[in-house]
Computed example of a mutant assay.
Amino acid sequence: MIKTGVPYGSDVSAGKYRCDDCGYIYTNQSKTSLPPCPRINQIPHYRHSWTILNGQGDAKIDPYPYGR
């Protein structure tokens, strides 16, 4: 299942993620928090989120780490 709009800083497991602003593909090899897109200083970013292409997304206890 593809989930969009997963904000930077969300807790995720290993998987592949696509930036919702520029399409950059990020592969995460271990459980961690999603970083900001590495292209954020090169291309304007407004959504500040990722689409989960595979892997697990936000934990229900921490769906939006920045209080969204």
Rank of each mutant, 00 (worst) to 15 (best):
I2L: 10
I2G: 08
K3L: 07
K3C: 01
K3Q: 13
K3W: 01
T4I: 12
T4S: 14
T4G: 10
G5L: 07
G5K: 03
V6H: 06
V6L: 06
V6C: 03
P7N: 07
P7L: 04
Y8I: 14
G9A: 06
G9P: 01
S10K: 12
S10F: 03
S10P: 09
D11G: 07
V12F: 06
V12W: 07
V12C: 12
S13I: 05
S13W: 05
S13H: 14
A14P: 04
A14Y: 10
A14V: 01
A14C: 05
G15F: 00
G15A: 06
K16P: 00
K16V: 04
Y17R: 07
R18G: 00
C19A: 06
C19K: 03
D21I: 07
D21T: 10
D21S: 11
C22E: 04
Y24T: 06
Y24G: 00
Y24I: 00
Y24K: 01
Y24D: 08
I25P: 03
I25C: 05
I25V: 14
Y26L: 13
Y26A: 03
Y26D: 03
T27R: 12
T27E: 14
N28Y: 02
N28E: 13
Q29D: 13
Q29I: 01
S30V: 01
S30Y: 09
S30G: 07
K31H: 09
T32W: 05
T32C: 05
S33Y: 05
L34P: 05
P35W: 08
P35R: 05
P36V: 10
C37F: 05
P38F: 09
P38Y: 09
P38C: 07
R39S: 08
R39L: 14
I40G: 00
I40T: 04
N41A: 13
Q42Y: 12
Q42L: 15
Q42D: 15
I43W: 05
I43C: 02
I43G: 01
P44K: 09
H45C: 10
Y46N: 14
Y46C: 10
Y46F: 15
Y46R: 15
R47V: 06
R47L: 13
H48L: 13
H48N: 13
S49Q: 11
W50D: 01
W50E: 00
T51Q: 10
I52M: 03
I52F: 03
I52E: 02
I52Y: 02
I52N: 05
L53K: 04
N54D: 09
N54Q: 13
G55E: 01
Q56H: 12
G57C: 01
G57M: 02
D58A: 12
D58E: 15
D58M: 08
D58G: 09
D58I: 02
A59P: 02
K60Y: 09
I61M: 04
D62N: 15
D62V: 11
D62E: 14
D62C: 11
P63G: 07
Y64G: 03
Y64D: 13
P65H: 06
Y66P: 00
G67Q: 08
R68E: 12
R68W: 09
R68N: 13
R68H: 10
